[in-house]
Design a protein around this nucleic acid. Structure first.
Lengths: 252, 252
DNA sequence: GTAGAGGTTGACGCCGCGTCAACCGCAAGA
DNA sequence: TCTTGCGGTTGACGCGGCGTCAACCTCTAC
């Protein structure tokens, strides 16, 4: 019972291109070739194809399928390993969905009522005391002037970005990432870049905030609930602080 | 405040390659080029990069990000659309995870106690009455001879494949797929190919089951609970039947 | 003069095929 | 006999988002 490539493709509900691909990568070679190099598949190949497709439907990569089928490797074991990856991907997706959801509602809220919630959530002028106390009245005045200069639209925009950044931090913190991990450090880098883009912050002339400013601010995130709430509470803020401090020590 | 590519990369916690890529695809061009073609980025580009990375973290594709940022397109709208896709992917993953789980337990069960559960689940000899009644005692005898010829190992193997195929059907049925959809028809094709590979089934000499055999069997899947349970009950079996009948009409 | 840092452009690789393009062999009809 | 058409063949690009060479350039410091 030798079948042509089209026969097999129709039988299996796949394309002939897929069969040629499987031949090419050594996953399923035809049993022989007829006149003109036409591929022929016997019953054994068709059965092998069945198993390939069943495993493929489970999301197993083709290379793994090849190993399982060729080396008599442990099928259940391979699937359980695969299951772990699927679940990890599930987690990632769930977090991303939640993150997007929060971002969307934040944006829409911000569009409808830009006053209360967001100004309250991260009002730039909110930390006047701390700023003046730590970096002098000059710094605050410059910063405040910049803030007013933004205008309502600019302020809304700025707050939205702020909230998005806080969102990213909160998400990572809830997940319990290591503050020294590559991911947390990348976030810290972006946080620092963001701070450095605000005229009036110490070091903004060099385009990056000073180490002292970042470290001080990081401590404030933990100490002051008004800031901490932007990063998932005190616990979240602790992660943010540790990450920022580590980053500042390294790069600033 | 013009920064070099490395500066920006470190600031943002990404690689310089990524920045070059963004330049290449027109997502983020540098503000200018210095001596030797060195890319330079001003503050506005850095801020744009911030937004790019925030949206990228949410899983939005780069092309969409470009549209949102360039055409002042509706950011919340784009994200909600993206959210739909994420949720669809979540569904797909959840179903796949469940499917893999069931397959794994089925395999392990089959390894430990191959007797009861699986023989009960889909005993080939189980439908002797129907086979003899509909296709004659000859067909049953041939089929039965083939079955015995498989031996215990072969029977176990065959049953495992059977269960996997039933699994795929059950999964699709629970999802409520249209029996005439491409997906269901592909499954039907594979089901038919599987039947055609069993010596003794009418039409197996041609490598594919006859239309009448498939249609009759499909009806039995719905009518007989012993079969229906392999496809998610009567409801599931109905989908299987409709898909198989449609396939048989078209291809056999 | 030469080494080194920090760039540049160009290209391949990943994964699982879809989708051309250009060609070949065989059978049926004008 | 020529043409048309079917059913294949090999080869190559494309997708997404970059990582990772390779080969080359420019400027500075020793």
């Amino acid at each position: 019972m030798n079948r042509s490539i089209q026969d097999v493709a129709r039988l299996a509900g796949i394309s002939s291109r897929t069969l040629r691909h499987y031949d090419q990568i050594g996953l399923l070679a035809p049993s022989g070739t007829g006149p003109g190099g036409l591929r022929q598949y016997d019953d054994a190949r068709v059965r092998r194809l069945q198993r390939i497709l069943l495993l493929r439907d489970l999301g197993l990569p083709l290379t793994d399928i090849g190993r399982v089928l060729d080396e008599q490797a442990d099928e259940a074991g391979a699937l359980r390993l695969h299951l772990d990856q699927l679940r990890a991907e599930q987690d990632r997706l769930a977090r991303q969905v939640a993150s997007v959801e929060r971002t969307v509602t934040a944006i829409e809220k911000g569009e409808r009522l830009m006053a209360e919630d967001m100004l309250d959530g991260f009002d730039h002028t909110q930390h006047e005391e701390e700023v003046t106390e730590r970096w002098g009245a000059d710094a605050y005045a410059r910063s405040d002037a910049w803030w007013r200069g933004l205008g309502p639209e600019g302020q809304k925009e700025w707050q939205a970005r702020t909230k998005e950044l806080g969102e990213a931090w909160g998400e990572a913190a809830r997940r319990g990432v290591d503050p020294t991990s590559e991911e947390a450090q990348a976030l810290a880098a972006r946080h620092a870049a963001w701070l450095g883009g605000i005229p009036g912050t110490p070091g903004s002339e060099q385009g990056r905030p000073t180490k002292e400013y970042v470290v001080g601010l990081a401590e404030m995130y933990v100490a002051d609930p008004r800031f901490a709430k932007n990063y998932g509470g005190t616990e979240g803020a602790t992660v943010v602080r540790d990450a920022l401090v580590a980053y500042a020590e390294r790069e600033l």
